[in-house]
């Protein structure tokens, strides 16, 4: 696998993504993170996985996966979920270096994540420590799915459906087979496949520009 190459000479400033650009002309980075816990006050970034897309095409060679040494003990109840133990990340590179690489990987792209606000929140928190910034527009596939469901025909179980928006349920709704859940790269890839199909549905519903998309599914 080709990991994203070492940093190229940094050009200044975030390239602006025109908000009226058609959705299938944009470059996306679909990402997912694993955390030490869900307690935002104390939690730390543990791993980040990301896949690049050109329009709806998933570029299998352009993947990003790093584990981070959180420098705190990883609670047992979370090890059970993501299977990353403190020992596994002892040799990992510093958070600062990894965020450097991540920033480079996502340059000029629209970020996509399932429940992306959680990922953005931890990334921003870590970035404040290391002096990075995160300016990319971001899309939450859970929100988009919620919007799409409500566009559909009213049905008895709609309320039920609207309550269950986890990645596994949504992926299944798109005919995908979730595997290796809670691995940041596997989940990012699964989300990318969901996003690939959503793009078609969205364009059929007349959502063709980033501006409209951010309105219905933007994440902050």
């Amino acid at each position: 696998m080709t990991l994203w190459p070492k940093r190229e000479p940094e050009s200044r400033g975030e390239p602006e993504i025109p908000h009226d650009a058609p959705l299938d002309s944009l470059r996306y980075v679909v990402l997912d993170t694993e955390l030490t816990s869900l307690e935002h006050r104390t939690n730390r970034l543990l791993s980040v996985g990301a896949v690049r897309m050109q329009g709806a095409s998933i570029r299998l060679g352009e993947q990003f996966y790093r584990m981070v040494n959180p420098e705190v003990e990883i609670p047992a109840e979370s090890v059970v979920i993501h299977q990353i133990r403190s020992d596994d990340v002892k040799g990992a590179e510093s958070t600062s270096k990894i965020l450097d690489e991540l920033n480079h990987f996502i340059r000029g792209t629209v970020l996509v994540g399932h429940c992306a606000h959680i990922d953005l929140k931890i990334l921003r928190k870590e970035m404040t420590q290391t002096g990075h910034t995160l300016e990319n527009p971001a899309i939450d596939t859970a929100r988009v799915h919620h919007w799409l469901l409500r566009q559909g025909r009213y049905s008895e179980d709609l309320t039920l459906q609207l309550e269950k928006l986890d990645l596994e349920t949504v992926a299944k709704a798109y005919g995908l087979n979730p595997e290796n859940a809670h691995h940041a790269l596997a989940d990012a890839f699964l989300t990318a496949q969901v996003w690939q199909k959503m793009l078609v549905t969205l364009q059929n519903k007349g959502i063709i520009s980033l501006k409209k998309l951010l309105k219905i599914g933007g994440a902050k």
Binding site: M1, L3, V51, L60, Q63, Y65, R66, M67, Q83, I84, D87, D88, G91, E179, N180, H183, L185, A186, F189
Partner: peptide, 16 residues
């Protein structure tokens, strides 16, 4: 990292 069942090539492995 050898103890981890899933590596950083989890996606590529499936394709391969």
């Amino acid at each position: 990292m050898a103890s981890r069942p899933l590596s950083d090539s989890v996606v590529s492995d499936n394709v391969v």
